[in-house]
Design a protein around this nucleic acid. Structure first.
Lengths: 230, 230
DNA sequence: CCAAAAGTGTTCACGCTACACCCATGC
DNA sequence: GCATGGGTGTAGCGTGAACACTTTTGG
């Protein structure tokens, strides 16, 4: 069949980039430097090229702006409201990424006019980017419950309290420190380092690192990563 | 900004259509009647037009082939492998639909060469449609656990045993009839009709209907529809 | 010694599981 | 009256929630 009677469309990718600064969950936004809506805050985006898949386009956009590779990146959904971009019909496929906020390239950020915003204090965004952010938050909340993706937002080594702070930021609630610790420990997926972090207490807290291998090899009957609570 | 230097793409929608015949979970497939791969089995699909959103395109495809409207339909994901359609670069946005298998228009199905296949006995599919089906199965399993979407696959009135059979088909496992019944009942979302179905037992089983209103008004602290088990 | 965060112990309640058991009815 | 699926009762176990308690160490 010849498809030449069918219409064609511009295809964009937009990335919701999450970071965590030990206190607040944050998003990386940048000031749009072209019309329409120049000067407004926006997700990182770009257009699909014919030589790449959508995933590849999203990785390209992410690498261009953060300088990072090997980042957790996952497709969210396609957004296709007809007037979403007033300049032209553009269908956008949204992605979300989880990065270690201390890893990114500061100069690149400045160059792009990019800035971290606390998830609770986001500025107005162009187009339907607030819909996309909402979807990303929902996905993060759902996924972090049953898959060990939270570690992507933390440094290589972290304390249990840091991990708890992260989950408290994601779910906007507190967790009982004692019960949270037990729950995480019972999964036996963390390696304890012989090092204590004394930044936040006199006693010092052991540093841990997530052991991906243990997770992947874990096929015990009925096991699932699950920090459900409510 | 002028987008005219950007490339454009064909955009398709493909629908994974689930049905349940009281015994097996099934998919509605049709025999592709144009090249490439004419004569092979395929998901229901169509191209996006400029006057509609992706959701609208998916509903249009679904209505054309089943004659049904007001169907549960949800976007799965975009598929963009470069050579997925050998005839041209086509990005497909996949959807899945849940329909009451006894509602569909038989004549329309014949007209399109469509046929129901048990989920365990699917034929080879064109392109990357097996990837799409896999994703749809995963989504159905995940969603059916925590949201009352299973009822979309059943007739208006059903017995608890039918409901259990459905969940057993989705999760490819058995559930203890006593415990399943109690779990469902404890949610208080079903209305019991003063009618018994005697097709499958001498004693007869009460028919129930799902009460959408009760579900939507249910904001009790901590309540969530959840038939988790394993 | 004291404050403050790290980390452990203990109790309670609830919900899933397994499985024994009763119920209604057509043959 | 008995086989068959519908439906109820119940005891045991595991896990989350709450919160009291101990540990460590810098000031």
């Amino acid at each position: 069949m010849d498809y030449s009677d069918k219409e064609q469309f511009y295809l964009a990718v937009d990335c919701v980039i999450f970071g965590f600064d030990n206190d607040h969950l944050k998003l990386l936004l940048y000031k749009r430097d072209f019309e329409p809506q120049k000067g407004m805050w926006s997700l990182m985006g770009g257009f699909l090229s014919s030589g790449e898949t959508l995933d590849e386009a999203a990785y390209r956009v992410l690498a261009r702006i953060t300088g990072l590779r090997n980042i957790f990146l996952e497709q969210l959904s396609a957004f296709s409201k007809i007037e979403r971009d007033p300049a032209a019909r553009v269908i956008s496929v949204a992605y979300y990424a989880l990065i270690n906020i201390h890893d990114y390239d500061d100069d690149l950020l400045k160059q792009y006019g990019a800035q971290w915003f606390s998830i609770n204090e986001l500025p107005d965004l162009i187009f339907d980017h607030d819909d996309i952010v909402l979807k990303a938050m929902q996905r993060l909340k759902r996924k972090a419950k049953t898959q060990p993706i939270g570690f992507e937002l933390l440094p290589e080594n972290f304390t249990i309290t840091q991990l708890r702070n992260l989950y408290e930021a994601i779910y906007q609630r507190t967790f009982d420190p004692a019960n949270f610790r037990r729950k995480i420990m019972s999964m036996k997926l963390l390696d304890r380092l012989p090092i204590k972090d004394k930044n936040s207490s006199r006693k010092g807290a052991y540093l841990y690192s997530f052991n991906q291998e243990k997770y992947e090899n874990f096929s015990a009957p009925g096991f699932s990563f699950d920090i459900s609570y409510a």
